[in-house]
Design a protein around this nucleic acid. Structure first.
Length: 275
DNA sequence: GGTAGACCTGGACGC
DNA sequence: GCGTCCAGGTCTACC
């Protein structure tokens, strides 16, 4: 799960050698504490450093449950995956879960910061946001939580451009922060999973800076796998796998996994690529 | 409904 | 050292 995608490389995540991660978590009370999640026999062990009351502790448990997808069931996907040699190892390796940030707000911002830039650029932009605007960890003030929507909403576009160097993504991040901070958009409510996938997708596409790729990526994080996040990486993988390396477009990527129906995203994500 | 162009930034590359 | 290209896309104007 930790290595399921690049999120582990983005602040405020820190990879733990041997399997696991540290994460600077800001609770709704405002308290900042460090979360430690690591592999343990038969599952995982999670711990948090700090003096938490019962409500805060419950929030931390809910955060861990969400971040590593403990409540997800992939039995139906595994039934199909057993029939496909390229996904034969999915069940044995417990593939399916993808690492999430503590809040959907954080994941939407991070997804916007992956658009039209290199991965190094995404890491740099996230690092600046966290370092400049995230609440410090009391035990180690050099480390910070991801900034809240309210904190980002208090900034202006010029700061996000010149200091965080988000470039043309600055107005998108700022608009999102305003919508979430004002209560107009309750992203965290979307985790519950009550909305039909198409409605969820339309809602995500209504966020400035979120297009087809970003929406599909966020749907994956929300446990909806009906769409493949088609980006240049996906086009490269599918081109090599089925088109002799010749340049292809979105349609070819979508066609490659269309037969997987509501599990297209998972089939794509955990496919055993030839290269 | 489909498609060029513009868009911040910064690293890679060619000269 | 400098110019150009483009990277894990999106939005807008235009047809």
């Amino acid at each position: 799960v930790v290595e399921s995608h690049g999120w582990i490389q983005l602040m405020p995540f820190t990879r733990i050698e041997g399997g696991g991660f540290r994460y600077v978590l800001q609770l709704t009370s405002g308290q900042v504490a460090e979360l430690l999640v690591e592999a343990a026999p038969g599952g995982i062990r999670a711990a948090i450093e700090g003096n938490l009351d019962a409500g805060e502790a419950a929030e931390a448990v809910a955060a861990v449950t969400w971040m590593v997808g403990l409540d997800q069931d992939f039995a139906a996907f595994y039934d199909l995956a057993r029939l496909e040699p390229k996904l034969a190892g999915a069940e044995a390796r417990a593939r399916g879960r993808v690492l999430r940030s503590a809040t959907l707000f954080e994941d939407v911002v991070k997804t916007i910061l992956t658009t039209n830039t290199s991965w190094a650029g995404t890491k740099r932009m996230v690092e600046r946001l966290v370092t400049l605007y995230g609440a410090p960890l009391p035990a180690d003030p050099a480390r910070h939580a991801f900034p809240t929507a309210a904190r980002l909403a208090s900034l202006d576009e010029a700061a996000l451009r010149s200091d965080a160097r988000l470039g043309f993504r600055a107005p998108s991040v700022l608009a999102l922060a305003h919508r979430v901070a004002s209560g107009e958009l309750d992203l965290e409510a979307l985790k519950v999973g009550a909305l039909p996938t198409e409605d969820l997708r339309r809602l995500l596409l209504g966020i400035r800076g979120v297009g087809d790729y970003a929406a599909a990526n966020l749907l994956m994080l929300l446990g909806r796998y009906d769409y493949v996040p088609v980006d240049s990486w996906a086009r490269m993988l599918v081109a090599r796998e089925w088109h002799g390396g010749q340049a292809i477009g979105r349609a070819e990527v979508e066609a490659a996994f269309a037969a997987w129906g509501r599990y297209q995203g998972l089939a794509y994500w955990f496919w055993d690529w030839a290269e």
